[in-house]
Nucleic acid binder design. Structure first.
Length: 769
DNA sequence: GCCG
DNA sequence: CAGTACG
DNA sequence: CGGCCGTTACTG
């Protein structure tokens, strides 16, 4: 499997570079691309430089440490970041950190301000649509030659227009590497023009000759008779995909390369009597016979799990329900598989949201068995019996399930759905408004109903992936992770721009109070509920009357500070202070800033530091060091509170993390940042032996959704991933009697863990899910 | 909340 | 043990 | 109807 994938990728890139070489003569385009890559590069460096951030802060002289050897603290992963200072400058910021919470001491009015914005800000993740260069094949700046860009358009005006065409983020380029030839092959028709643009935005090239095309898109209405002559002129046509215009549209809608061998895409485009010839199959090579509709039908009928058990080569690489599998799509594999993401994507989908489209659009008529399921869908319109509903779902799930059970072979290669997420992109998203309201709903459920929360997030991700606005419940239902309830909400939002349930919830004072209380460190839903029911209404109430744990008291006393985001530069400055102090104690200890910082965020909720050292095999080895460090930093006044340490680790050797608060000393405060103000910050320290660094990096880099999905993926493979390593599952009998935690497979190397899991490597900045 |  | 927090 | 990450780790 490994080999196969590799081969595919190689083939893909080979092909791709060839394609790219022949297109893109367009300077503007090239320049833009170039710039894009520059930005990416810069950004990438910035994000990966975690450890040795000789931060912009004028050498953190502050804390005594005169001639201390500034520790190099090499970053484990290659990325030798360049100058952070410079990087930071370039790193785009999109949103200044939210101002501190308003006076909570006061009354309701403030509370209100507190709540709403909070739920709205949950992901201050800046937009980084420019990230993602990684896969982007090097565009050999092949000048001249075929100046032809990827469009046959002739008019200058048009060309210009096209030059401005913006490629969508890579993860949306479902057509990358494909070359479309339209019949008719012009953009005179408005609709077609739009379709062409959409296709091109998603990576397709619009070619002028049939010969160079991989896909022939025939206007709907035209029949085989109509295009016959066209096809005849090209001897290679049998190797092409010939579909009607609905095909690319559906692909766009579903954000994935669908199987073109479906009746609805090839209707009227085949020669009824002679299956083989001008047959829409896939790409060159195999294409032949088998792909006639009859064949398809047959397959559809008896699909079932057997199809799924076919060897990888015969698996569809289109993200699509197996019933549409056809035996002749192998060639496309090369492209599709490469375009497609790893299975982690799917788990991310499963775990949080966005996922793939395993489901066919319930397009108008379809033939065979499937159409029935489809019809159910259609019929259900507004008021379907819950029975129909569930049966429909069953069918769909079954497909998915089957698909998923394929994990070891192709199922993970089957979609080009989301790649490791990057942030942003939401700006111009047609569903932005819907997303925003749903996001508020998430805020309302946060800490209350975790699962529901997750469902909302999942739905949001699915919406974010759409390229066009979802306005009806029916439409929404087609998206993975969106069921009846959410679909209805989506429709409501689309219809009148508001969600009554949300507004209602927002009005409820208990919710406001609850939200307030929940933002206190150490306060969960249980405690918050108790307090609310006990009649407490303000933080002041709590401070004075409630019984608070140590941590909760700290959380309340420093509520504003702790709820304020930390700008990236400060994260670096804080880390520098710690390093500085650490240098005195043990210069060989290394620090890596994890968390959202490592993912490239321009602001963080807290600072996450991994403390590690070569040749350590247990976090215990680092304990003495940490104790000294803590003491030292506390004495310095840097650490201001301990929220969770490892005091009584009676447990087996697991003393590994320290949570607390810190304050950037004025001496470490950059002069150019205005007036100094001490702000309490949350800081998490994680002791990590070298042998566990990889796993710890994954864990501490997150984000949480990413972690959960990759862990879920691991578990589905019979493995176990936690912050200490990847383990081969050892029958863990009940009661953990198994005094073995499983055979450690890997813990040291982050990339290796990805490999072992069969997950394509993702840079930290690609782990926003 | 969704999914199997 | 439940509650909370971490990514 | 039960699962939804971690045999996570720390507090009380």
């Amino acid at each position: 499997m490994e080999e196969r994938k590799l081969a595919e990728k190689i083939a893909y890139f080979k092909r791709l570079s060839a394609i790219q070489a022949e297109e893109n003569g367009d300077d503007a385009y090239d320049a833009e691309e170039q710039a894009h890559r520059e930005r990416c590069k810069t950004f990438h460096n910035a994000t990966s430089t975690s450890s040795r951030a000789k931060s912009p802060a004028p050498s953190v002289t502050g804390l005594r440490k005169p001639g201390t050897v500034s520790q190099p603290l090499p970053c484990p992963d290659s990325s030798q970041g360049s100058d952070d200072l410079e990087i930071i400058k370039v790193t785009p910021r999109n949103r200044s950190s939210r101002p501190g919470a308003a006076g909570i001491a006061d009354k309701t009015p403030n509370v209100e301000e507190e709540i709403i914005p909070e739920s709205a800000h949950p992901d201050p993740k800046p937009a980084h649509s420019f990230l993602h260069p990684l896969l982007r094949p090097r565009m050999t700046r092949q000048t001249s030659g075929l100046t032809s860009d990827n469009s046959p358009s002739t008019s200058t005006a048009k060309r210009k227009k096209q030059a401005r065409l913006k490629l969508l983020p890579e993860n949306q380029q479902i057509f990358r590497g494909l070359r479309f030839y339209y019949i008719p092959n012009d953009d005179a028709n408005r609709v077609r023009a739009a379709q062409i643009t959409k296709a091109r935005e998603r990576g397709a090239s619009w070619v002028r000759t049939l010969k160079e095309a991989t896909h022939v898109i025939v206007d709907e209405g035209l029949t085989y008779q109509d295009i016959k002559s066209d096809l005849m002129s090209d001897s290679s046509s049998p190797g092409k995909v010939i579909v009607n215009a609905n095909y690319p549209i559906d692909c766009v809608i579903h954000r994935i390369l669908l199987n073109p061998n479906q009746e609805k895409y090839v209707r009227n485009l085949r020669v009824a009597e002679t299956p083989p010839s001008p047959n829409p199959s896939s790409l060159p090579a195999s294409a032949q016979a088998s792909s006639n509709s009859l064949e398809i039908k047959r397959k559809q009928r008896k699909r079932s799990r057997k199809d799924q058990e076919l060897p990888p080569e015969t698996q569809s690489d289109y993200g699509e329900p197996l019933q549409n599998n056809t035996p002749s799509i192998a060639p496309v594999t090369t492209i599709a598989a490469a375009l497609v993401e790893d299975e982690l994507s799917q788990y991310i989908g499963l775990v949080q949201g966005n996922s793939l489209y395993l489901e066919m659009p319930l397009e108008e008529e379809e033939d065979s068995a499937q159409s029935e399921a489809t019809k159910d869908d259609e019929a259900e319109s507004g008021s379907e019996s819950s029975k129909d509903e569930s049966s429909r779902k069953k069918k769909r799930r079954t497909r998915e399930k089957i698909q998923l059970s394929q994990e070891d072979t192709t199922w993970q290669d089957s979609f080009a759905c989301m790649k490791g997420g990057t942030r942003g992109a939401a700006v111009d998203n047609p569903n932005a408004a819907t997303i925003e309201l749903l996001q508020l709903m998430v805020g309302m459920y946060e800490h209350r109903d975790d699962w529901r929360c997750k469902s909302y997030r999942r739905a949001i991700t699915a919406l974010r992936q759409q390229t066009r606005k979802i306005t009806t419940a029916k439409e929404a239902m087609k998206l993975p992770g969106i069921g009846k309830s959410l679909a209805a909400k989506i429709e409501e939002i689309a219809a009148d721009g508001r969600l009554r349930k949300l507004e209602h919830a927002q009005q409820r004072p208990e919710n406001k109070i609850l939200n307030l209380f929940l933002k206190v460190y150490g306060v969960g839903i249980g405690q918050a509920n108790k307090w609310v029911s006990q009649g407490y209404r303000t933080l002041e109430d709590l401070r004075e009357k409630a019984k608070l744990s140590t941590n909760q008291r700290i959380g309340i006393e420093h509520f504003d500070d702790l709820n304020e985001r930390i700008p990236r530069w400060e994260v670096e400055a804080l880390a520098a202070v710690v390093r500085e102090a650490a240098g005195d104690i043990d210069a060989s200890v290394e620090f890596i800033i994890g968390g959202s910082y490592r993912r490239g965020s321009d602001s963080s909720g807290d600072i996450d530091l991994i403390i590690t050292k070569k040749r350590t095999r247990s976090s215990q080895n680092l304990l003495p060091f940490l104790e000294k460090l803590i003491k030292r930093l506390t004495d310095d006044g840097f650490l201001t509170a301990a929220l969770a340490s490892f005091s009584g680790n009676t447990k087996k050797g697991h003393g590994s993390k320290w949570h607390g608060c810190c304050v950037l000393p004025e001496t470490a405060f950059p002069k150019d940042k205005g007036k100094y103000r001490p702000i309490w910050r949350r800081i998490d320290l994680l002791l990590v032996p070298e042998t566990e660094l990889g796993a710890a990096l994954i864990y501490f880099t997150g984000n949480d959704i990413f972690n959960r999905s990759i862990r879920l993926l691991a578990s589905k493979k019979g493995l176990r991933l936690n912050q200490r390593g990847l383990f081969k599952d050892v029958l863990r009998g009940k009661r953990g009697v198994t005094y073995t935690e499983g055979d450690p497979l890997e813990g040291r190397d982050e990339k290796r863990i990805f490999e072992l899991l069969g997950v394509k490597w993702r840079e930290p900045h690609e782990r926003w899910c």
